[in-house]
C-alpha cells in the first residue's frame, strides 16, 4: 500500500500540485486520471522520488521515503518497477541486456539464472525471442512490453506506469492494460497507472483518482465513475458531445 499525504509542488512559482492525498492499494490497479497537464506525471515522479515535493510525504507500506537519504531510498527503489511515458529503454543495450541490467547490478544470480529470469519476463509480456534485438528495432507496443518486462524483472512490490498505452492502437492498448492487471493480481503488486484513456479506466480501474487543478477532485471505482452526471469529471469522461448524448440517453432510458 502506498499513501501520499498533502503533496504540494510548484515550478517557478506556478503551483502544479496543491495538496494531493490519496491511498493506493496492493493487488489493485490504482489509476490517476486527469487532463493533459493536470499533474499526473509530476505526482508519479514525486512518489518515486524523481521530483522532490515541496511539502507532504509519501509512505511505502509505512516507510516514509521523503525523509530518506540516498542509501535508504535505494532499498525501497529496488522494490519499485516503473514504465516511463516514453519507455526510457537503454538504447545502447539489447532487449535482453535492458531487462537483465537490474539483475546484473543488484543480485548475485548466476548467468543461467539471469537468462532464465529474462526469458521468463519476456514470455510473460508475450515477446519471446526478441532477446537480441535493440530498442530502435521495435514497434511502440513492443517497446512498452519490454518496458514492462524490465519493470517486473526484480519482482517489484510497487509498479508505476506512466501512460502505458499512449500512442498505441485500441487493441494493443487493451492487451497492455490486461497485462498490467494480470501481473498486479498475480504478484499482489501495488500498481499506480497514469492515464487519460477512458478504455483503461473502464478496463482496469479498480480504484480511480481524478486530478483537477492541482487537487484530488474525485476518487472511486470504475463502476462508480459512470454514475457521475455533471461537473468537471463528467466533462472529462464524456469528452465528446456524442458520448455525452449517448450517456444521457442511456440514463434517461434507465428511468
Amino acid at each position: 500500500m502506498i499513501e501520499i499525504k498533502n503533496i504540494k509542488k510548484s515550478f517557478g512559482g506556478t503551483p502544479v500540485l496543491k495538496g494531493v492525498s490519496a491511498t493506493f492499494e496492493s493487488g489493485k490497479c490504482n489509476l490517476i486520471i486527469g487532463k493533459s497537464g493536470s499533474g499526473k506525471t509530476v505526482t508519479l515522479k514525486c512518489m518515486v522520488g524523481l521530483i522532490e515535493p515541496d511539502e507532504g510525504y509519501i509512505l511505502f507500506d509505512g516507510r516514509n521515503t521523503t525523509e530518506m537519504d540516498f542509501t535508504a531510498r535505494k532499498e525501497v527503489r529496488k522494490e519499485i518497477g516503473m514504465l516511463f511515458q516514453g519507455t526510457a529503454l537503454f538504447d545502447s543495450l539489447s532487449v535482453e541486456a535492458n531487462i537483465k541490467f537490474p539483475l546484473d547490478m543488484f543480485t548475485k544470480m548466476t548467468a543461467e539464472e539471469k537468462r532464465d529470469r529474462v526469458n521468463f519476463c519476456l514470455e510473460r509480456v508475450n515477446l519471446p525471442n526478441t532477446n537480441k534485438k535493440y530498442p530502435g528495432e521495435l514497434s511502440g507496443g513492443m517497446k512498452k512490453r519490454v518496458g514492462i518486462a524490465r519493470a517486473i524483472v526484480m519482482n517489484p512490490k510497487y509498479l508505476f506506469c506512466d501512460e502505458p498505452n499512449s500512442g498505441l492502437d485500441p487493441k494493443t492498448s487493451i492487451v497492455i492494460d490486461e497485462l498490467i492487471k494480470e501481473i498486479t493480481q498475480e504478484y499482489n503488486i501495488t500498481t499506480v497507472v497514469n492515464t487519460h484513456d477512458m478504455n483503461s479506466v473502464m478496463g482496469i480501474g479498480d480504484k480511480v483518482v481524478f486530478l483537477h487543478q492541482g487537487l484530488k477532485y474525485w476518487e472511486g471505482t470504475h463502476k462508480e465513475i459512470l454514475k457521475i452526471t455533471d461537473g468537471e469529471l463528467f466533462d472529462f469522461i464524456f469528452a465528446s458531445d456524442f458520448l455525452k448524448d449517448l450517456r444521457l440517453r442511456a440514463h434517461f432510458d434507465d428511468k
Partner: peptide, 17 residues
C-alpha cells in the same frame, strides 16, 4: 540524450547511483 529520454531516470528508479 539519456537525460532527455528519461534513461537516466530509469537507472535512478532502479536504485543505481
Amino acid at each position: 540524450t539519456m537525460r532527455i529520454s528519461e534513461q537516466i531516470d530509469a537507472y535512478e528508479i532502479m536504485g543505481v547511483n
